[in-house]
Design a protein around this nucleic acid. Sequence first.
DNA 1: ATGTCTTATATAATAAGA
Length: 264
Amino acid sequence: MPDRLIDGAPILIATWNVNSIRARKQHLLDWLATAKPDVMCLQELKVREEEFPFDELGALGYEAAVHAQPTYNGVAVISRLPIEEVIPGFAGEEGQARLLEAVIQGVHVLSVYCPNGQDPKSDKFEYKERFFAALRAHLDGLAKPGAPLALCGDTNIAPEARDVWDPEGCAGSVGFHPREHQWLRHLADWGLHDSLRLVDQRPGLYSWWDYRGFGYGKNRGMRIDQIWVSQGLKGSVKKAWIDVDPRTWERPSDHTPVLCELAE
DNA sequence: ATGTCTTATATAATAAGA
């Protein structure tokens, strides 16, 4: 058995695809002030690193590790606990800023923004396939499943029927396609567990609703953001939930935060 | 409802994502 990884106080980890850190800066600051996560993974920064709000997050007690590019993609880990090591990027990115790892209290925290894939017939879908294969290979080279690791972010895949608003209608579409489920299963087979499903089996728990067609109002959502924990952290997951509230705010991200509390 | 709302960029109209 691995050593105890979480000493003392519980650690609250969160992940949020903000869909532009500039457009959502105040939402993020407001949410941090009340939710108070210790570690937070962010995706879709859509900003140059020099325009990332280091100072305003610093004022709330967070240091930040950022892997960004102009206009598209971009991921970060922000933390109130010291960040011991930062590894930006990996071999599968193909020039797009989609993965950053930060080591915090010995825990590997990975913020990931997986490709959307657009359409199963699109070449972007092939990129999504390569990305998932490369991500699995990256984990193979990074750590053993017994090591403490949390892979957090927007996988752009809803794992199961209970994670989409219309399983029949969505079947075969991007985000809920059998090939995508194979890729996600292969990734999870490294030794990852979907933290929310360790503690909550209810259907209809969504993290994303389409801007189009009044998706949120009709609750046409999908759970495409997850916090995956390694075998070494599985026993430490005490709570896991989705905070829908920010999706109701004015000019929201199309995603809402996902959280997981780790404790002895 | 293959829609339309979002954000980005050499700030006006377009591209791209979801």
